[in-house]
């Protein structure tokens, strides 16, 4: 039962532009960089660079230096290691991880457990930085499921922006239970 949705030919630049639009629509911040710059970029995010609207306004810790950082990206130094007990990450400030692929139509990024180090870090961290190669962006979810085996690991998630809710009178609030901010670093590769 092939689904047969049209594969439209789009240039890489168009795909990237659509991804950036979609990610912005999901309230993620997108910045550009190279792999060599990553450590400096991420260090620069500490502090108010990550503060966003929503509940972060009420987060007394939001402005302080992101001192507790779990990094799963080589070359970006972290300050905490993957613990045996996920509860040990309760005060995590920052998770830095690398996405497998990005989906242009909705801004989602595929993150399997191995890329997160610890599943709970994704939702315990106040801010999540996802590094993503421009070349990994695909057009839509059909292409995404064709490209990744979602059953290869015990856990994997399409992440689209920071945690949010609209349960109070339909007002969009950023930072419900998970990350209050998501920054995507698009790598020129």
């Amino acid at each position: 039962m092939p689904l047969g949705f049209a594969q439209r030919i789009v240039s890489r630049d168009d795909l990237v532009a659509r991804f950036i639009d979609s990610a912005a629509g999901a309230a993620a911040r997108v910045v550009h960089g190279t792999r060599a710059e990553l450590a400096t970029l991420v260090a620069g995010f500490s502090g108010d660079g990550l503060a966003s609207d929503g509940v972060a306004r009420f987060d007394r810790e939001a402005q302080r230096v992101a001192s507790r950082c779990l990094s799963m990206v080589p070359g970006v130094p972290g300050t905490v290691a993957v613990p045996d007990d996920p509860h040990a990450l309760a005060d995590l400030d920052l998770l830095v991880c690398e996405g497998v692929l990005g989906v242009a139509e909705n801004g989602g990024i595929w993150l399997p457990a191995s890329r997160l180090g610890e599943r709970s870090a994704l939702v315990l961290a106040r801010h999540v930085v996802v590094v993503l190669a421009r070349s990994s962006i695909v057009a839509d979810l059909h292409a995404a499921y064709a490209a990744v085996d979602v059953s290869a690991e015990s856990f994997g998630v399409f992440l689209a922006g920071p945690s949010k809710t609209a349960d109070i009178e339909q007002s969009l609030v950023i930072g419900a239970h998970g990350a209050m901010g998501v920054t995507v670093v698009l790598l020129d590769e």
């Binding site: 979609s22 999901a26 909705n106 801004g107 989602g108 979810l141 059909h142 690991e153 920071p162 998970g178």
Partner: peptide, 25 residues
């Protein structure tokens, strides 16, 4: 799931995707 996840959030809240679409195996 490519079909259903493209439809679900757009039909429910008008978002292109939910923030988390978690696959547990």
């Amino acid at each position: 799931l490519g079909v259903f996840l493209r439809l679900l959030a757009r039909s429910a809240t008008g978002q292109a995707s939910t923030v988390y679409a978690s696959h547990m195996h």
